[in-house]
């Protein structure tokens, strides 16, 4: 029974994230919508910020882009590959702190099984298709604004590119959360409850 359930587990690693339940598709979609709503409001505020205020934001690219998981540990979507960079950066050797546990001891990494790899690849295919269209729209929008406010947009180009990078980093995870059907997350909760 356990093996059967485990085989059907999807890439959703958590049944709640930052206090938000992620058990149903509706809840997962709400998380995606909220994430992008925050990103858009971030953009709206950021465009009027002083350029010097962008520095700390840019330093957090990996954290913001990987908030939904996938490219880093701790998000609702399982990491796509072994997060060596993250672990090495925070590990005892990286910080020269002897005896300190690498990263967070509560987070464990397991390789994706065949079904999860398939799901990851399908999500990237979908994300790639979405990205092509959104990149076209981004370039079109950029040139339209260029006609009317060239100096303003030129000043903010790095910030806009940074936002697009965040979008790019988060898109496959958003696709996974958005398209994951009902079921596996509850099964995951069952398995975890059973394991305790």
């Amino acid at each position: 029974m356990r093996v059967g359930l485990r085989w059907r587990l999807a890439m959703i690693e958590q049944t709640s994230f930052l206090g938000m339940p992620l058990k149903t598709q509706k809840q997962r979609r709400l998380l995606v919508a909220l994430y992008y709503a925050i990103l858009i409001s971030f953009a709206a505020v950021g465009l009027w910020l002083d350029k010097k205020s962008w520095g700390p934001l840019v330093a957090q690219t990996f954290v913001f882009g990987g908030l939904l998981g996938g490219i880093r540990m701790g998000g609702p979507v399982k990491p796509y590959a072994y997060p060596s960079f993250e672990r090495e950066m925070d590990g005892p050797r990286g910080l020269n702190l002897e005896g300190r546990k690498p990263f967070d001891g509560s987070l464990s990494w397991t390789p994706l099984d065949e079904r999860e790899r398939t799901q990851r690849d399908v999500a990237h295919y979908t994300a790639y298709r979405i990205l092509r269209w959104s990149f076209g729209l981004f370039v079109l929008g950029y040139f339209l604004v260029m006609w009317t406010a060239a100096a303003w947009i030129a000043d903010r180009t790095p910030f806009l590119l940074w936002l697009f990078l965040l979008y790019m980093l988060s898109l496959p995870q958003a696709v996974v959360l958005w398209t994951e059907p009902e079921g596996p997350a509850e099964e995951l909760a069952e398995v975890r409850a059973g394991a305790r």
Partner: peptide, 26 residues
């Protein structure tokens, strides 16, 4: 799908170069 996964990694990996150059250029 696997090819798109790999391509996505490469394209997303190259994008920060554009960003760095744009910030530097500014």
């Amino acid at each position: 799908d696997r090819a798109h996964y790999r391509a996505y990694q490469m394209v997303a990996g190259a994008f920060p170069v554009v960003l760095l150059l744009a910030a530097f250029g500014l």
